[in-house]
Amino acid sequence: MRRLPVYLLLDTSGSMKGEPIEAVRCGIQTLISTLRRDPQALETVFISIITFDREVKVILPLTSLESLQIPEIEMPDSGPTMLGAALGVLCQQVDKEVILSSDKVKKDWKPLLFIMTDGKPSDTKMFNEMIPECKKRNFAIITGCAAGMKADTISLQLIASSVVRLDTCDSATFEQYFKWVSASIMSGSQSVGTSIELTLPPPPSEVEVVI
C-alpha cells in the first residue's frame, strides 16, 4: 500500500501558551477525526507532528491514521523559535521515514508539509540553510500558516509554496485552518496516479492567503 506522509511542524514557543495551543490541539483533533471519516485518507494517510520552541521534538513519528493517538504537547514559558532547527529535524525524519524506492514495499506518495508559526525563526542562519535542503525532499506541497498578526509571512514564503495568515489565534480560526488542512490532505490522497501539481482546495474565509 502506498502511504501519503503528512508532516505538521508546529510552533510551541512561549507565545503560543494558553488559548492558542489549546486551539491548535482542538484543531488537530478535528483534523484527525475528519480524516478518519474519509476512506481514502483512512487507509493511506500517515501523520507526523514535530514541535519547535527552544527545542525541536518529534512528538509523533510518522504514524498511520488508524493507529494514531494525539500526543501531549508540552511547551516552555518563553524562549526562541527554532524553526531552522525544526526544518533540519524534519529533513532527517523524511529521509528516515519516507520510502522512495524499495523492491519489497511500495513507494510512498510525495509527502505534504504544513508549517504553523506565530512568530519568526530565531535561528535565521540555520533557517536559510535548511530551505534548499527542504526543497530537495520533494514535498508535493509546503504550506505555511502565519498565526496571528505577529507572525512573519516573509520568511514563511521563502520555504512554502503557499502561505496563509490567520488574524487571530482563537479556536474558531484554528478549527477552520485545520479543516482546510484536512481538505488539502484528502485532495492529496485522491490525486492518485498523477504527476501533475497538486492543487489545494480554496481556504476558508477566516484564512487570508498571502500572495
Binding site: S101, D108, W109, N138
Partner: peptide, 10 residues
C-alpha cells in the same frame, strides 16, 4: 515509474 509513488509517463 518515478522516485515517488504514482509517478509515471504518459
Amino acid at each position: 515509474v518515478g522516485t515517488y509513488g504514482g509517478q509515471t509517463r504518459f
